[in-house]
């Protein structure tokens, strides 16, 4: 079994979108609409502690995970590798991909609002708009399909 973990330096939404494209839960061949992305986020962006790793799904014997690591991204990946060794797991079965976040102001505002009660719907709309404008970012990550992507 292979394990692919998509992570970002924010709240994990960018990582979630890249993982979703990988699993074909979002289209990778055509640009989805803002409404499609917002609806997808509505179904998946649960409020959980920062750093939490989520399993999004499984495809052809591979498990796909996503998480938001804030400023701990580089450190967390190094720590994962060391603990995989501690547990005598096969390192070559694990792939970690850093997903950049869109630079749009709407994205940052969306991430900020995501954990504010009553603002989540607005947050999803901001995030979806920014994501669609810079959708190529996520597709580029999926093209880096080798160890340590």
């Amino acid at each position: 079994m292979k394990h692919r973990v998509y992570y970002d330096s924010g709240t994990g939404v960018a990582a979630l979108l890249a993982a979703a494209i990988r699993l074909k839960k979002l289209r990778g061949d055509v640009l989805p609409s803002v409404e499609t992305v917002a609806a997808f986020l509505r179904d998946h962006d649960k409020v959980r502690p920062k750093g939490d790793v989520h399993l999004l799904g499984e495809l052809r014997g591979e498990r796909i995970y996503w998480c938001g690591l804030g400023r701990s991204a580089t450190i967390a990946v190094r720590t994962w590798r060391h603990f995989l060794h501690l547990y005598e797991e096969r390192q070559e079965d694990y792939f970690f991909y850093q997903v950049p976040s869109p630079k749009k102001r709407r994205w940052k505002r969306g991430e900020r609002l995501l954990n504010k009660p009553g603002q989540r719907e607005k947050a999803r709309q901001y995030l979806a708009e920014a994501a669609v404008k810079e959708y190529a970012l996520f597709l580029t990550v999926l093209m880096t399909d080798w160890q340590e992507g």
Partner: peptide, 24 residues
């Protein structure tokens, strides 16, 4: 010993939840 950087709670959560998801 282990250094977890400036956001130790986040890095710790990332570590433990990752291992949990793998069933370790």
């Amino acid at each position: 010993t282990l250094g977890l950087g400036p956001e130790q709670a986040v890095a710790k959560q990332a570590l433990l939840s990752f291992l949990d998801r793998l069933g370790l």
